[in-house]
Every structure is written in structure tokens, then in C-alpha cells.
Design a protein around this nucleic acid. Structure first.
Length: 679
DNA sequence: TTCTGGACGCCA
DNA sequence: GGCGTCCAGAAG
């Protein structure tokens, strides 16, 4: 007991060998981001293993820490304190993850313990005491007995062969439309398991985890697969994580945090749909799954697959730098799997049908949907996220309609019948003040139009256009994982599209204007990604599958969708970012804070020669009406360096935070490397 | 939260 | 010059 240890404190004797322990202490201060040496008592000798949790007295306080090394000697000249307590002998911080966490902290100018908070779940003593899980079953068969469906891809066979032999492989995989990608990834993991090694697969959300878990368990057995997602309780989460740590499973599938999942004999790392913003960790130091897995593959020698229906500029850079090989569909497979895609711009022929006119559906979309429904197939309708009529614009010049008082966006309050002419006045979404006499400041018009049509209203209107057809919605809090293969209208927001048994007969992609109009570095890439993710759920053209996209066919993302060529789009995207000096062609960091401390920080930081400072400029913060008085004026500056100086930039920013932290600078300046949307 | 050391002041 | 007190800064 701790009491006994305290009572005998004076009599502690050092451990017979390796009496020094190097500890990362869990204090959030950037200038203390290094190890501290402690003495190990003889009574702690057996428990104080590398990777275990400890408690130490640090500046008088008891704090948690991780033991990362046992040693014979110390550089510290003062007197060493003993470890207060070894919390448990479970080595939760494996050497591989320790090395990775250090590298991630350095890359993002964060601290080791910040990364460890993301990587290691909180301890649950009862779970830890449970019987040691059994070692993984020997997966029978030689690698080449694993049959697989990678034949439709250029270099698909080569990839699987390499995984089976344990040769390091790095691939950017573009999945075929309609591909059963969980099955393909499960085959890859099975191949790796047959060679005696493990796989970690990271996906955007829990529905993907469930699909993959099922696919992997089918091939490898339930006990070989661990599923990790955020919705598990702390006990179950720790239980499963421990199974992986103790080497009881060959495959981990999980959401974001699984990028750090421990795995003995790591052979393969996979990120599915790396463009999904769920892969960006929102907690400091804001690491991105793809970039962490690239780092992890590099450090561990494991293979890596960056996968998706679309391709990000970052993945394209991995291809162009020859770090990874493209694994793309061959022409024949693509032709026989892709749906037929048609675009329509703003000037489209409205359907003749009365109800379709009311729904403002273009003829081409109406016909595609009607044909699919007639063939008793479901129709997917992708609509923009959130609400009823998210925002309003001037009816004649389309300048966004803003509040006269606070310049917030005007919207029609939810719950109204939009087709009623007696609709209530629009109101400001920030301050709530109603606007009954709108006049456009740009052109003087009094007309208002809905900028984007929301999911609920679309569902209502489409329901009227196709009387008698079942309408189902998926999005927000109610997300459907799958629907059956019979005639129905399935209205979904991006990312919430259910999988349809046998594939959708048609998809109408109606969120193009909302997305493409955004002033965002990733608008084009993100739009294409969402379209492809939805369109990939549609049957091949050979079986009547049709996709109608609400954008001018001449636009680059629409072109890429029609030709089903995400690699071409990614090439253009990367070329454009090179020209403009945007990531990933350069490395960027953002500094955000109140004007004075931000200016001081920019003044203090010692940047590499090549660095360019952009701004600072006022930053648009999402305001909440109830918090307006608390809101402070924020500014943001961007730092830009060529990729070769990325490390130097991160080091400079880490040093900045260390010296600000050491001075106990009260005003916070938030530092972010590789921010997702720098503009 | 505790400890240390440097600055300063008081006294011899 | 020596010793005690106070405070800031580091922190094993």
C-alpha cells in the first residue's frame, strides 16, 4: 500500500540494476517537454518497466508520468527523488509509439504528453486486472492462398504480393466505383496476418468501423480483430485497446485515435478516405491521420495504403514524389463499374411534370430518378448539410443577405412551411433580430432567395414530386448505415449516405453550388470527394446506374466526376497549389490570438530565412448570440516556408511556445501546423 | 506546491 | 562582511 511506502520513505534503497528511470511528466508546459530522471527503489524494480505509468513528485506536486527508459547513470547534478509510485506494470507506452509520439510532437510543434493523451486511453484498473488475453491464432495458409479482388487494379496483384512477402509497399489506392472496399482492405489485412504481422486501419466514422470489422472478422475470426471507436465506454475502450497492446489480435480497425493503436509486428497501415475532415484531430497538437501514418510507416518500416474513391492533393504529392505507388482501376474495370454521370448548370430545363417543377428539379434529374424508381431501385439524393434554408441571398444579385445590426447571415427560422407566401420574416442567425424590410446594400433589390436548400425541405418537395414513393432521410443525428434495394428516395447529407443493397439506381447530387461557392482552399477537392463517395454507391452504367450532378459540366470537379478521374483532378489541384504557394506544396503554420500578444509572438519568433509572414488579419469566428459579450477580437497570421524548411519552422514555433510558456505568458497564441484550411 | 538562490536590508 | 528575509523562478 502507498501508506507503507510513505512511512518507510527514508529507508528506500535503489534498485539493484538500472536504478535510474527517465520520465515524461504530465504537465502541459511546453518548456518542460523532455524527460526527467528519478530513482527507482528496490521495491519498484520489477514493476518499473519501460512504458509503464508512474506517479512522481514534481516541484512538490504529485503528477502522472510515463517511464520511457531505465538507465545506469544520470546527467542531473542535483539529488534525485524516488518514483513516488509505479501505477501499474502494464507497459502502455510501447517503444514504437513512444518514438512515433515524439516525432508527431516535433512535427506539429506540440508536446509529447499532448500526443500521449491522444494515443493512450485512460487506465481502468479493473479491466487491466482481467486475465491476459490469448495470443493471436496462427493464421493458416501461405500468403498466396488468400484469394482477393484486387485484380481490377493496376499493380493490385503486386501490392498484395508485397504485403504477403513482407516487402515494404506504399500505395495510394483509388477504389473503383461500387467497390466493396471493406472486403478489399480485409483481404489485405488477411494477407499480412498470414505472414505473421498485424494491420492498423483508420476510417472516418463508426459506420465504417462496423463494416470493416465485419469484413475482417469474417476472414480472420472475431478474436483476431479489435474495433476501436470513440463511442465505447472507458472500460470497453481500454479493454479492447489492451487486447491490441498485448498482441492478442492481428487487426485493429478504428476511428482517428486508432492511428496510434499499438500493434506488435506491425506490417500494414491503412487510412480510408483521407480527405474526410474527421481525420483531422481537433485537439492539440492537431495531427492528421494520413500524416501520422506516413510518419509511422516511415519509422516502423510498415507498409502504407492511403485509400479512397477520390484523391487528395496530399496523396497526389506522395505519388509525385515517388514515395508511394498509385494503385488505380484499369480501364476495363472502370468502364464496367462506373455509373453514367450527367451535369446540369444553373440554366437547366425544368421538368415538365408539375410536381417536379415545384421541387425545382431539372428534367434530367427528374427523368433519372423516375427511371430508377420504375426499376424498383432506390434513388440517393445528396443535399447540403444542416437545416431548412441555411441562408438567404439577394434575389437579384445574389449578394449574401446580412443583418443590418451585426452583419450576421440572415435565414428563415426553421419549422416553417417554405412554400407558404405568408412565411415569417427572416432573422439574423447571430443576434436573432428579425429583418422585415430587407434591401440589398449592393443593388437595392428587396427580393430574397434561398441560397441553399436544406435536407428537410428537399425531402418534402421531392416527396411531392414522386407521390407514393417512400422517402427516407439520413443525416445529422439520425444516420442510416444501409437501406434495402427497393424503390425509395433516400435524402442524405454528405458523409451520411447509406449503402444500398445492390446499389442505387440513381443519385442526384444537389449540393454543388453550396460547396463550390465556398472561399476555401479545398472547395474543389472536397466537392469532388463528396460527389464520388455518393456516386460510388450507384450501380454501374451497364446496369442502368445514373448520376446527375448539380453543377455545370464544364467545371473542373464536374469534369473529373463525369470522366471518373480523381487522379487527374488531384494533379491539377496540386499543380495549382504549387503555383499559388499553398499546402501541400509548401508548409504552413497559423498563429491565432489577440492582436497584441500575436504581434509580440511574431516579433519574438526566430523563423527560418525562407519564411514568409502573411497577415495578421482579423479572423472570422463563428459567433454565438449568447456569447457575443465574451467574444474577443482575434487575428491570425500565416507562416509559409518551402517544404524542406518544414522541420525548421516547427522547431522555431516549438521554441517560441517554450519561451512564452516559461515566462508564463498569460495571453494565449494558438499555434497550428498544417492547418486544414489556411484560407 | 515546494525548494532554491539571488537581491536586498539590517546589524556588527 | 555576515546573516536573515523575501520573492521569483524552476521544477529530477
Amino acid at each position: 500500500m502507498a501508506r507503507a511506502a510513505t512511512a518507510r520513505k527514508g529507508e528506500r534503497r535503489p534498485a539493484p540494476s538500472l536504478p535510474i528511470a527517465r520520465i515524461y511528466v504530465d504537465v502541459g508546459l511546453p518548456h518542460l517537454d523532455r524527460t526527467f530522471d528519478y530513482r527507482v527503489a528496490d521495491t519498484q524494480h520489477d514493476d518499473a518497466v519501460v512504458g509503464c505509468r508512474v506517479r512522481v513528485r514534481f516541484a512538490g506536486q504529485l503528477v502522472d508520468g510515463y517511464l520511457v527508459e531505465r538507465a545506469d547513470t544520470t546527467d542531473h547534478t542535483g539529488r534525485l527523488a524516488y518514483l513516488e509510485r509505479v501505477v501499474s506494470p502494464e507497459p502502455v507506452l510501447t517503444p514504437e509509439i513512444a518514438t512515433l509520439a515524439r516525432a508527431v510532437a516535433d512535427k506539429y510543434a506540440g508536446t509529447m504528453v499532448d500526443v500521449l493523451r491522444l494515443a493512450i486511453p485512460p487506465r481502468h484498473a479493473k479491466v487491466e486486472a482481467e486475465a491476459v488475453s490469448d495470443a493471436p491464432d496462427v493464421v493458416s495458409g501461405t500468403p498466396d492462398t488468400v484469394s482477393h479482388g484486387w485484380g481490377g487494379y493496376q499493380h493490385g496483384d503486386a501490392l498484395l504480393t508485397a504485403l504477403g512477402k513482407g516487402t515494404r509497399a506504399r500505395a495510394v489506392w483509388q477504389a473503383l466505383p461500387g467497390e466493396d472496399w471493406p472486403a478489399r482492405l480485409a483481404e489485405a489485412a488477411t494477407t499480412v496476418a498470414a505472414s505473421g504481422r498485424g494491420t492498423v486501419i483508420v476510417v472516418p466514422d463508426y459506420r465504417d468501423v462496423a463494416r470493416l470489422h465485419h469484413a475482417c472478422a469474417e476472414r480472420l475470426g472475431e478474436r483476431q480483430v479489435v474495433a476501436l471507436s470513440a463511442d465505447l465506454g472507458p472500460a470497453e475502450r481500454y479493454r479492447r485497446w489492451l487486447r491490441a497492446r498485448r498482441g492478442a489480435a492481428r487487426v485493429v480497425v478504428g476511428t482517428r485515435a486508432a492511428m496510434f493503436a499499438p500493434m506488435t509486428d506491425l506490417g500494414l497501415l491503412v487510412v480510408w478516405d483521407d480527405g474526410d475532415d474527421l481525420h483531422a484531430e481537433p485537439r492539440a497538437p492537431y495531427p492528421h491521420v494520413r500524416d501520422v501514418l506516413v510518419q509511422r510507416a516511415h519509422l516502423s518500416g510498415a507498409s502504407l495504403v492511403v485509400a479512397g474513391f477520390a484523391r487528395t492533393a496530399e496523396a497526389q504529392l506522395l505519388v509525385e514524389s515517388r514515395w508511394a505507388h498509385p494503385v488505380v482501376p484499369d480501364r476495363t474495370s472502370l468502364r464496367s463499374n462506373a455509373p453514367r454521370v450527367t451535369g446540369f448548370g444553373e440554366d437547366f430545363d425544368l421538368a415538365r411534370d408539375e410536381a417536379a417543377r415545384a421541387a425545382r428539379l431539372p428534367a434530367v434529374a427528374f427523368e433519372a430518378a423516375r427511371a430508377a424508381l420504375k426499376a424498383d431501385a432506390p434513388v440517393l439524393v445528396q443535399v447540403p448539410r444542416r437545416g431548412y434554408v441555411p441562408s438567404l441571398a439577394c434575389g437579384s444579385c445574389r449578394t449574401p443577405a446580412r443583418c443590418r445590426r451585426c452583419a450576421g447571415p440572415l435565414a428563415v427560422p426553421a419549422g416553417q412551411q417554405a412554400h407558404e407566401e405568408t412565411a415569417r420574416a427572416p432573422a439574423c442567425r447571430w443576434c436573432g433580430v428579425p429583418e422585415s424590410r430587407f434591401r440589398c446594400p449592393a443593388c437595392g433589390s428587396a427580393q430574397l432567395r434561398a441560397q441553399v436548400i436544406g435536407a428537410r425541405r428537399t425531402a418534402e418537395e421531392l416527396g411531392r414530386a414522386f407521390p407514393g414513393v417512400a422517402v427516407r432521410t439520413s443525416g445529422g443525428k439520425e444516420v442510416l448505415a444501409h437501406v434495402d434495394g427497393s424503390a425509395a428516395l433516400v435524402i442524405a447529407t454528405p458523409g451520411a449516405e447509406p449503402v444500398a443493397a445492390g446499389g442505387y439506381g440513381a443519385a442526384l447530387l444537389l449540393d454543388g453550388w453550396a460547396l463550390l461557392g465556398r472561399q476555401d482552399l479545398r472547395a474543389g477537392e472536397e466537392t469532388l470527394r463528396r460527389w464520388m463517395t455518393a456516386a460510388a454507391l450507384v450501380r454501374p452504367a451497364e446496369r442502368g446506374g445514373r448520376v446527375v450532378v448539380g453543377a455545370d459540366a464544364g467545371l473542373v470537379p464536374a469534369q473529373a466526376l463525369i470522366r471518373w478521374d480523381p487522379a487527374w483532378h488531384a494533379e491539377r489541384e496540386l499543380a495549382e497549389r504549387r503555383e499559388l504557394g499553398f499546402p501541400p506544396a509548401v508548409r504552413m503554420a497559423s498563429l491565432e490570438g489577440e492582436p497584441e500578444p500575436l504581434a509580440a509572438a511574431l516579433d519574438e519568433v526566430v523563423l527560418p530565412e525562407s519564411a514568409e509572414v502573411l497577415g495578421p488579419v482579423p479572423v472570422m469566428t463563428p459567433q454565438r448570440p449568447d456569447r457575443q459579450s465574451e467574444q474577443r477580437e482575434l487575428e491570425r497570421a500565416l507562416l509559409r516556408v518551402p517544404n524542406v524548411d518544414g522541420k525548421a519552422l516547427a522547431a522555431a514555433l516549438a521554441a517560441l511556445q517554450a519561451s512564452r510558456g516559461a515566462r508564463k505568458e498569460p495571453d494565449t497564441v494558438r499555434v497550428r501546423l498544417d492547418p486544414l484550411s489556411p484560407i
